[in-house]
Structure formats: C-alpha cells, structure tokens
Computed example of a mutant assay.
Amino acid sequence: MKKINVQTNRRDEMIDVTNEVHQYIKETGIQNGTVIVYCPHTTAGMTINENADPDVKRDMLRRLDEIFPWEHSKDRHMEGNTAAHMKASYMGASQHVLIHHGDLVLGTWQGIYFCEFD
C-alpha cells in the first residue's frame, strides 16, 4: 500500500493522480492485477474521467454545484458542508483500475482524479 499526498487549493477541485498511481505500479513491479485508489475522507472522492480537456473538470464541478448547492435552507449539518458530503458520496470513495503488462488499463483520454469538495 502506498499513500499519495495531494495538496488542494480550492474548496472544489479535481486533481489528476494518474501519474502517481502509475509510478506506484512501476515501483512495485506488478504486471497484472487490480489497483484500488481509495480516499479516506468524507468530503472528497475519486473518479475516472477525461484528462485531456480542462473544460471537463470545470463542467463537472459546475454541474455538481447545481445538483448539490453549498447553501440549502433544509441542510442541518452543523459544520455547514453538507454539499461536500453529498458530492463525495456521489463520486464514491474509491476506483478500481485494471493492470495489464505493468500498465494501467485506462482509455486514451482517461485519468484518475482526486476530487476535493471542502
């Protein structure tokens, strides 16, 4: 198991961690199998999506804000970050990626993202 530290700069942010995961696979020498990328936070998540066009990240974050607005009159969580918890649950805490011949099995435009929501 390897811990990847991710520095975030904004409340809502998607950070590509594909290279860090790929480096781990190379370091371990794993040729075939599965890697699980897990986020142990209740206000952040993991997803796999396009990593070529930065507009995809902006569009996703904007749409998540539309679905889970930061301010909602019925939210009761005393920390005031219910939207972050909702977004994290929506994205999920982990992603499974296949490894074949020492490489991650991802589509041409796919990347693994850590998603910060708080």
Rank of each mutant, 00 (worst) to 15 (best):
D16G: 00
I4Y: 03
S89P: 04
I48S: 12
G111H: 13
L104P: 03
I112E: 02
H85C: 06
H41Q: 11
H101V: 09
E116P: 08
C39R: 03
M86R: 00
A93Y: 12
R63D: 10
V17W: 01
K2Y: 14
V6N: 02
T108D: 13
D55A: 09
D118T: 03
T34C: 10
T28A: 05
D53I: 00
H100W: 11
E20S: 14
H41K: 02
K87C: 01
F117A: 04
R11N: 10
R76L: 12
E79F: 04
I99Y: 09
Q31K: 13
V37A: 02
V21A: 06
L104N: 03
D103C: 08
F68V: 08
G92H: 01
C39I: 05
C115R: 03
T18Y: 13
I67Y: 08
T82Y: 00
W70P: 00
Y38W: 13
I25E: 07
N49E: 07
P69M: 11
N49M: 07
P40V: 05
G111N: 06
E71R: 14
V105F: 12
N51M: 07
G102R: 07
M78F: 15
I15K: 05
L98Y: 02
P69Y: 08
I30P: 01
V105I: 12
E20R: 10
N5M: 14
G80Q: 11
T43C: 05
L64A: 08
M60K: 01
N49R: 12
P40Y: 07
G80C: 01
A88G: 01
G45C: 10
M78I: 15
R76Q: 05
L98R: 10
C115L: 05
V35L: 00
A84R: 03
M1S: 12
I36P: 07
W70T: 13
G33M: 05
W109C: 06
H72P: 10
D53S: 01
N49C: 11
H22V: 14
